[in-house]
Design a protein around this nucleic acid. Structure first.
Lengths: 123, 123
DNA sequence: CGGGATCCATACTGATACTG
DNA sequence: CAGTATCAGTATGGATCCCG
């Protein structure tokens, strides 16, 4: 990414929002960067997952926050919820096209964190 | 990004951490995606800024969270703090090379949010 | 100007119990 | 299996006042 591109993004962030309070993009940013939102989106990046799988994939998440975060992401149109009316019931979660697009921007960031976590926490 | 790349990133996230609890990368992720951390990093993306400038740039941030978040980011080696001992005192904040590198991964995400916020919140 | 200290409200977490 | 409901404890954020 060139410097001129960086500047233009920053300028648009200032005028259109994000850095401005009360801007709708703040809400989206909060959802996307929420503690569990990122991890769930990443966990869904490869394939659709069932409730119990997500609960195991994302270690440490409580059932309450799992349900709450999934509902938020579903409401944002990032995650698709599909119920199969069987006994026992089966519910699959998957990324929507919008969610897939978002995750493609998210994974480079996660990869960076993975590679640099040691540098950050070591000193 | 290809599918094979996505899979490899996810697999490394599962084995090396992030999705695993008690992993150091979780801490880094929390700092980077903290409510104000993202906005401050972006605000610093173009040039170094003074305390008062950041306070105005990032609308809605309280002085407490500004100080707290800046100290965290400084401790993570992402932000550099430079004090000029004058009267009145002057303190400048800027991105470290590590911080600059991180922001280059962060801006595409912010740009995506900017472009898709309407689609997410409208329905 | 650039913070630190304090108090309060909210959000999150954890444990448990219950349901279709 | 996939949740919902509730309560209690904790962590986090915000508002305010104060200081060198």
């Amino acid at each position: 990414m060139t410097v001129s591109q960086q500047v233009s993004v920053l300028e648009r962030l200032q005028t259109d929002g994000v850095l401005a309070a009360a801007c709708p993009t703040r809400t989206v940013l909060d959802h996307v960067t929420s503690k569990w939102g990122v991890l769930l989106l990443v966990a869904l990046s490869e394939s659709s997952r069932r409730w119990g799988e997500l609960r195991r994939d994302v270690e440490g998440i409580s059932e309450k926050m799992l349900a709450q975060t999934l509902r938020t992401l579903e409401g944002d149109g990032l995650v698709h919820r599909e119920v199969t009316a069987t006994v026992p019931p089966r519910v699959d979660y998957s990324l929507t096209p919008l969610g897939t697009d978002l995750v493609s921007r998210l994974l480079p960031l996660m990869e960076w964190i993975l590679e640099n976590a040691d540098d950050i926490l070591a000193p």
